[in-house]
Design a protein around this nucleic acid. Structure first.
Lengths: 212, 212
DNA sequence: TAGATTGTTAATCGATTAACAATC
DNA sequence: TAGATTGTTAATCGATTAACAATC
């Protein structure tokens, strides 16, 4: 959020909870429920009813007064808010352990993401298919991004290579980078970066373990 | 944090930043730096100096007035706070794409975690070694946990199986669960759970992308 | 000394939680 | 109607940021 863009009324924490709601609502929908109250959702999610109410309100989920949230409409509202109502094409850089696992994670299809190409410099990987996705040499990065008009990158490579590749991605007009390398990336402010650090979660767990 | 345990003075966000500091300090140490100021660290990490000062203060990192933080001592302080100064033995349940990737992630050795066994029900996996870790049948879970006195579990299995396995783990005396399955686990309050939801990060990225 | 830094308290900001009115 | 719920405003809590004193 920079000082020129409109202030988003929706908190980061709310956004992080949305996929959880979505999963519950998919289940409810599959069971044929058409309405669900925040108290029922609270039992299911271990969140407070007021948190759920506020979160769903924030994305404009439709309600029926005194009866709860409309299941089908809420799914639409969340998917629409996140842009998950149609698939965004993305590509992966780095097909090591983590990268391969990401390619095998079919769940992304439910999350608006379709990985249509992968890149690596390892000659044993280039030319192969991993979980149905073609692996190209990183040298082809620019031409393929431009040809396929890709805007979303997933980075699963060593920290030392991440910033260099990022600069290339920015040049090619990539607008979103999901970064699993343990380095903070520098990008222009019109490029969205989401930094994942698996060690943060482990640190939290270890801190909890010590305090118990 | 329940109402009986002492209130931890250190915030969750601070804890999540500790691994990042640790990486920077390892580098500084490797380069032979013995002192570093919070302003220098700020340039490196893209955090504010005051954030760094407070975070490191919270874990008791040693300083030299007017000169900054002592590199070696700060590494010790962070590692000690997280319990990463000696390896904790852990085990993995579920050797699918993600589980295998976790086994291949050598970085855990730097983060106080050593995965010494893996479990799966798939007959093609049982009896194999993945990245040097033996895969046992889930039926052997109880006996191996007890024999090896394991206290930390890493869950990388389908959501539908997670709670059932968790109940078994709790019975066996497991004290910490790092859960990659997309379900909230119910556990007694003396068991630490860290929930990872990869979709949360993707949701954040998509929200940023839309607002740019 | 001057200046850069840590140390520490206060102010601000944002998210969560509580309270209660409005509704059917 | 009574009661369960959403809707909405206020209070609380926690984390971040600012300000400035103390230090060498």
């Amino acid at each position: 959020m920079n000082r020129f863009s409109a202030k988003s009324a929706i908190s980061k924490q709310t956004i992080r909870r949305l996929p959880q709601y979505l999963r519950v609502f998919y289940d409810l929908h599959a069971y044929g429920r058409s309405l669900v109250s925040s108290t029922d959702l609270a039992a299911e999610t271990q969140l407070l009813p007021i948190v759920i109410k506020k979160d769903l309100q924030a994305v404009g989920a439709p309600t029926k007064l005194r009866a709860g949230f409309k299941v089908a409409g809420t799914i639409e509202a969340i998917e629409n808010f996140l842009g998950w109502d149609n698939l965004n094409k993305a590509f992966l850089i780095g097909t090591g352990h983590l990268g391969s696992a990401l390619l095998g994670f079919s769940g992304f299809q439910n999350h608006g993401l379709e990985i249509v190409a992968a890149f690596d410099t390892n000659p044993e990987k280039v030319g192969q298919e991993i979980h149905g996705v073609q692996v190209y040499h990183t040298a082809q990065l620019k031409s393929i991004i431009k040809a396929k008009k890709l805007k979303i990158a997933v980075l699963a490579l060593p920290g030392s290579a991440a910033q260099g590749i990022t600069d290339t991605l920015v040049e090619c007009g990539v607008k979103a980078i999901w970064n699993f390398a343990p380095v903070k990336l520098s990008v222009p402010e019109d490029v969205a970066v989401q930094q994942e650090d698996i060690a943060s979660g482990l640190a939290e767990l270890c801190a909890k373990l010590k305090s118990n």
